[in-house]
Computed example of a mutant assay.
Amino acid sequence: MLIASLKPRTMGGTTNTGLLAYALARAGHQVTCYDADESLQLAAWARDVDDFPGTVHEADTPAFAETVYPAMDHNRVNLVDAGHAENHPDIVDSVLEVADLVIVTVSPTNPDYDRLVKPERGTPIAKLIRRSAALRDSGKAPTTVILLNRCQAGANSPKEFADLLTNGGKDGTLPRWDVLTTRIPRREQIASAVGFPCDKPGRKAPYDALVTELTRLGHVPAPGGPR
C-alpha cells in the first residue's frame, strides 16, 4: 500500500513521516519511504542515522504516478513525504493519483487551519484531495485523515480545532475531515528527532498509538495481511 503524508507549510511534517516509518517497522511492517518534498529532508535523515527503517528514495517529481509508483514493491508499506502541499500542487497531484491513504499533519493553530482550506497563496489541500478523484481509477478521492500535531498538554486548542475540522468550520460550509483521536504532543524529543536515531521513549509512544489506531480503523493492514 501507499501512504501519503501531506502537510501545509507547517512544522513537524517530515518528523511525523519519519517517526511513523519507525513505528510501522516496530509493528512488523516492511517499510520503504519516498521523499517527495523538495527539501529532501527525509532522505538526509536516513543517510545520517544507522537505524532508519528502510530505504528512502528521492521522488520529488510531478511524474510520481508514472515513474515512481510502478516500481514500488506493493507488498510493503510505502510511505511518501510530500511537503508544503499547497505550494507544490504538481507533485502532490501525482502522489494523490495513486495513494491508498492520505495523512494530513496539521497543528491546532489558525495559520495551519487556513492553509488547509484557504491559504493566502497556493492551492488548498482540500481542493487537491477533492480534484484527485478525477485522476484515479476508482473515480473517488483517497481515504484521508487529519493528524493533529504539536499539541500542548492541557490546552483546549486540539479539541477546538478537531471540532472545526470535523464540522466544516464555524458555519459548516468548509470541508469536513476525519480527525484521528491520536494526538502528537509538543515534545522536545519529537521536535529534535530529524537526523537522529529513534532511541528515546518519547519518540515512540505517540507513533505506536498512531499505527494502532490506523490498523484498528482498517486504514493500515495488520502485519502479514493483504496490502
Rank of each mutant, 00 (worst) to 15 (best):
L116Q: 04
T123V: 12
N78P: 07
L164P: 10
T10K: 05
L180S: 10
G12Y: 13
T173R: 07
E97T: 00
R203L: 09
R176A: 15
A141E: 10
S192M: 07
L19I: 00
A71M: 00
D112W: 14
A153Y: 12
L135K: 13
Q30M: 11
S132C: 09
V179R: 05
T32S: 10
T143C: 13
A44D: 15
A126W: 09
E66D: 11
H88C: 13
H29N: 10
L19H: 06
T61M: 03
A43K: 12
P197K: 02
G225F: 05
G28T: 08
W45M: 04
D178Y: 04
P223G: 13
L147Q: 07
E97K: 03
W45I: 01
T181K: 13
N167H: 09
H57W: 09
G139H: 02
G168Q: 00
T15F: 12
L165C: 10
A153F: 13
G225S: 13
D90W: 00
G28E: 15
L116Y: 06
L40E: 07
L19N: 07
L96K: 03
D93V: 05
K204P: 03
A205N: 14
Q41N: 15
D81W: 05
V145M: 04
H57Y: 12
R203W: 11
D50H: 14
L147C: 09
V145G: 06
D171T: 14
S107E: 15
T14R: 06
R47G: 09
G13R: 06
I190F: 12
A193M: 08
T144Y: 13
T109I: 07
P197M: 03
A155G: 08
K200Q: 15
L174N: 04
S138Y: 04
D137H: 06
E58V: 15
C151V: 00
S39E: 15
Q41D: 15
T10H: 05
Y207D: 02
G12E: 14
R136T: 02
A162H: 02
W177F: 12
R115T: 09
L40Y: 14
N156P: 13
T109Q: 05
R176F: 09
A191N: 14
F64N: 04
I91C: 05
E188A: 13
F52N: 03
A155E: 06
S138H: 05
S138C: 05
R131G: 03
D73G: 08
R76N: 01
V56A: 02
L128D: 03
D35Q: 04
T17H: 11
D163I: 02
C33R: 08
L180D: 13
D81C: 11
Q41H: 14
T55E: 12
A59S: 05
S138Q: 04
D163T: 14
A27W: 00
T17P: 04
T182F: 08
T143E: 14
T215V: 11
D90H: 06
P124S: 03
R115K: 11
G122D: 01
G224F: 03
N87M: 12
K118T: 01
E120V: 09
R176L: 10
A162T: 00
S39I: 04
R26I: 13
A65W: 07
K170Y: 15
E58R: 11
L42G: 08
E213Q: 07
C33I: 03
S132W: 05
V49N: 12
A43M: 08
A205K: 15
